[in-house]
Write a protein that binds this DNA or RNA. Structure first.
Lengths: 219, 219
DNA sequence: CTAATATTCAAACATGCGTTTAAATCGAAC
DNA sequence: GTTCGATTTAAACGCATGTTTGAATATTAG
């Protein structure tokens, strides 16, 4: 029989309904009914509703960040030092392609990601950010290589600008050409990053740790 | 007696708890207890929990967008055509100052705003965006004036990048110097906007309506 | 075939929610 | 001082939720 396993059917239905109605509004009864499984199956296979949410996240983020790192390696091997636009594209394009691809699943999942970011779910945040923190670190290093002499504190702040622009863009519901949006965003971000790279910025630039490692690590 | 009126005490407590736990998790029992009023007072004064949320939003957004427009008028009167950086600062600074001001209330409210954006609450969205759509329109016009010959469709897309960077930055929980963050973001955004202003962009740039008027209007 | 293990199932449990109700209390006007 | 509308109060209603339970059913192993 081509019937998917119970776990996967639960994950699929949960992803759809979490993204559509939010974590707390999507009930396990809705989810299990949409998945065509019994209500208690969630607790049997995942333990709790919260654990189910985490499992939904893990399944997608693994694939996304793997695609990002793969494209980053390619960008790093193509020139020395790496080209800024190539690094940014490796960060931006897989996310946009995933969120706006032909399958609507990716877009739905990105909505879910935005929700989780806004919800500031501490447990989920901690679990996820520790799993994928190294991805953001790798990109920060690559951008620093592409912009020699840049101010690290300013660069980190500007990276948050890029993540914000990307996250917000992904959450937009109308979908048009992914490639052109990605290139617009890459050009926009590259110009912005270079605008602070010439050693301008006379003032303090207080380097407060603790700003990194938030959920942006995942988007 | 210096006791605040019941309505205001409910609004204050609701803003805190909505921002802290989200709309659906913050219960009316929590809110009324924190406000020191009876549970039924919410329905007597506001009608429903949803209407209470809307009232919380209105109270803050009025002040924020008024401050933005005031600073925009000043920027428009200072030079002809207006300077791009001044226009952007009028959009960015009041929001950042409000969200990171000495009172923690502003920051909490910005969290609430992000939540509402992520929640895609249709009713709230419709009510709010229609009330403040003209603010975004005014800023789009001003930026178009500051960048003569710019592509309107591209400009709108880039404006979303700016809104995203701003929203994301506001939601960051650590608070440091507002003025320096604002100027970093303004320089970043100005460079990005100018990067697409020289008539580049040969491809389509399909102008799909319906992209505007989303909740970004409020942030 | 049988025994043991893994999975599914229907039903119930306890809890918290938004909302409603009707009586009690307050504040000013006559 | 009494009356009348506005406000506050305590209690209850109806309902949906996440979770647990224990029996029924599949699945696998010996």
């Amino acid at each position: 029989m081509p019937e998917a396993a119970t776990c996967d059917r639960i994950l699929d239905a949960a992803e759809v309904l979490f993204a559509e109605h939010g974590f707390h509004l999507a009930s396990l009864r809705q989810i299990t009914q949409a998945a065509g499984v019994n209500l208690a199956a969630v607790h049997y296979h995942f333990g709790s509703k919260q654990a189910l949410l985490l499992a939904v996240f893990r399944r997608r983020l693994d694939a996304l960040n793997q695609a990002r790192l793969q494209q980053l390696e390619q960008a790093l091997s193509q020139s020395e030092p790496p080209e800024l636009e190539s690094v940014l594209d490796a960060f931006v394009y897989p996310a946009l392609a995933f969120s706006r691809g032909s399958d609507t699943d990716g877009h739905r999942f990105m909505n879910l990601l935005m929700r989780a970011f806004a919800d500031r779910d501490e447990d989920l945040h901690a679990a996820i950010s520790s799993e994928y923190a190294f991805v953001m670190r790798r990109f920060a290093e690559a951008i620093a290589l592409a912009l020699p002499g840049s101010n690290p504190a300013l660069l980190r702040r500007q990276l948050d600008f890029v993540v914000g622009a990307l996250t917000y863009t992904m959450a937009e519901s109308n979908l048009s050409d992914t490639r052109s949006i990605a290139s617009d965003l890459v050009r926009f971000a590259a110009a912005g990053l270079r605008s602070g790279a010439q050693g301008q910025r006379p003032k303090d630039s207080t380097d407060q740790t603790g700003a990194c490692g938030t959920l942006e690590t995942t988007a």
